[in-house]
């Protein structure tokens, strides 16, 4: 099926992450009259010309494509807000600024389908790109600090698309350290007590027996 991700490479495909983002709510201003829509995912409308209403992004995009509405730019996507975020992002090397969990996908969909509704389109676009780059740089430097003692990595405010992109690296790094830290791999001169339970954790070894 289209969009179904290969479970071995990454858990979610980019299309699937975008699918989830399409359920985020945005404000639209319709230019036509339409009865309320009673969907499985909720009730939206009724729609009246010039009256702002909230709908999921996929519905906004569908209406926008047919020229039935304009999409209101979400507040966090204004040049002013994004400039603040970018500055804060640069000033705090260890933290991520709070942005919508799907900010990458939402902005992508807005750029693709509602560009005429975004004032300062190029400014907004380059700001989002800068923010992404700064954040990825932080993730990369963060990866360098992972060591054998790492049991947990905190990534508060990391967004869905960012999670999906860094997932293979982070998981493989942690697993590699975890594996090589295993007492089965190295002889610890001080076979400390707190290492023992980890061994039990790891389940039975499955070595090929030699004859």
């Amino acid at each position: 099926m289209a969009g179904q991700s290969d479970p071995h490479l990454s858990l979610f495909s980019a299309a699937e992450v975008e699918f989830l983002a399409e359920d985020e709510m945005v404000e639209i201003v319709p230019n036509m009259k339409m009865d309320a829509l009673n969907f499985i995912c909720g009730d939206y409308g009724p729609f009246y010309p010039q009256l702002t209403t909230e709908v999921p992004l996929w519905l906004a995009v569908a209406l926008k494509k047919r020229g039935k509405c304009t999409v209101r730019l979400p507040q966090w996507m204004s040049v002013e807000k994004l400039t603040q975020v970018l500055e804060a992002e640069r000033d705090s090397p260890r933290e991520f600024q709070p942005l919508p969990f799907h900010y990458v996908e939402i902005s992508r969909l807005m750029f693709d389908h509602a560009r005429d509704d975004i004032p300062d389109m190029y400014m907004v676009r380059s700001l989002i790109e800068d923010i992404r780059n700064v954040r990825f740089h932080k993730v990369e430097t963060g990866l360098e600090t992972i060591s054998a003692r790492t049991h947990a990595v905190k990534l508060k405010n990391l967004s869905a698309m960012e999670v999906n992109i860094v997932r293979p690296f982070v998981v493989r790094t942690l697993q590699a350290f975890y594996k090589h830290d295993s007492p089965q791999m190295i002889q610890h001169p001080d076979g400390t007590a707190n290492r023992q339970p980890q061994v039990a954790d790891r389940g039975p070894r499955r070595d090929l027996r030699r004859r």
Partner: peptide
């Protein structure tokens, strides 16, 4: 609330 972690 709303923390994001990579854990075992």
């Amino acid at each position: 609330a709303d923390d994001l972690y990579v854990l075992r």
